[in-house]
């Protein structure tokens, strides 16, 4: 395959400075992402501590099998992401592309499974209070679903953004932009993707495996 040589931006002294700057910037971005999700986890902790039984009842309406399936899918996708970065470091463009395609496929599968789950909840009315029509012994059951939809919804949004980024990387790979000396976007989207994966690793037990 052809290689398009990367040109170091005018304000950097060398490629190393450029790469390490981009990577530090990405880590800082991830730090703010963690803080962004943090308030949700705090809200979860508070309302679960106040209503432990309501949370246990509510979580029975979620399918842990679907959640587990999605967890496996995302872990695989993190692996394929790492392999695509590795392939780029070895200038193996074909395998970079196919590993990215596999990552994209996993992300898509995650979203499909998630939408089945959402559809289930919507048809039975297990929704935030405005649309809530589900049945349950607790009056405030809707709080769980408010938190559930907010957390998984924001996470899903991050998955969608990741899918867009992966498509962008696939196009750049085909054009030959990534090789042993330049793979910054791959590295950084990879970091982002692992964070998205990690958030789900926390969401899964907290929402699906209570009690």
């Amino acid at each position: 395959m052809n290689i398009v040589k990367h040109k170091v931006a005018h304000h950097f002294a060398n490629a190393h400075q450029e790469f390490s700057s981009a990577k530090l910037g990405m880590w800082l971005f991830l730090a703010q992402e963690v803080l962004f999700f943090s308030a949700l986890f705090v809200a979860y902790a508070i309302f679960r501590a106040l209503n432990p039984e309501m949370f246990i009842e509510a979580h029975h309406h979620l399918s842990w099998k679907m959640g587990a399936l999605n967890t496996v899918v995302l872990i695989i996708s993190s692996f394929t992401m790492v392999m695509s970065v590795r392939s780029a470091q070895l200038s193996r463009q074909r395998s970079t592309f196919w590993y990215l395609a596999a990552t994209f496929f996993c992300a898509l599968m995650f979203m499909v499974v998630k939408s089945f789950e959402y559809y289930e909840k919507i048809t039975h009315g297990y929704l935030p209070s405005v649309w809530f029509s589900g049945e349950g012994t607790f009056e405030n059951l809707h709080i769980f679903f408010g938190i559930y939809f907010t957390m998984t919804g924001l996470h899903g949004l991050h998955v969608l953004v990741g899918m867009g980024l992966i498509i962008w990387l696939m196009i750049k790979t085909v054009k030959g932009h990534f090789y042993a000396d330049y793979f910054t976007p791959l590295e950084n989207v990879g970091l982002y993707w692992h964070l998205v994966d990690l958030v789900w690793i926390f969401l899964f037990p907290l929402l699906y495996l209570i009690g």
Partner: peptide
């Protein structure tokens, strides 16, 4: 700026969700 502002962002987002879909928190 990096560590505090995202908490404001999520708080305001939760406020919007509270107003639109009755999040309940």
């Amino acid at each position: 700026q990096v560590l505090a502002t995202p908490v404001l962002a999520i708080t305001l987002l939760l406020l919007v969700l509270e107003k639109t879909m009755g999040l309940g928190i």
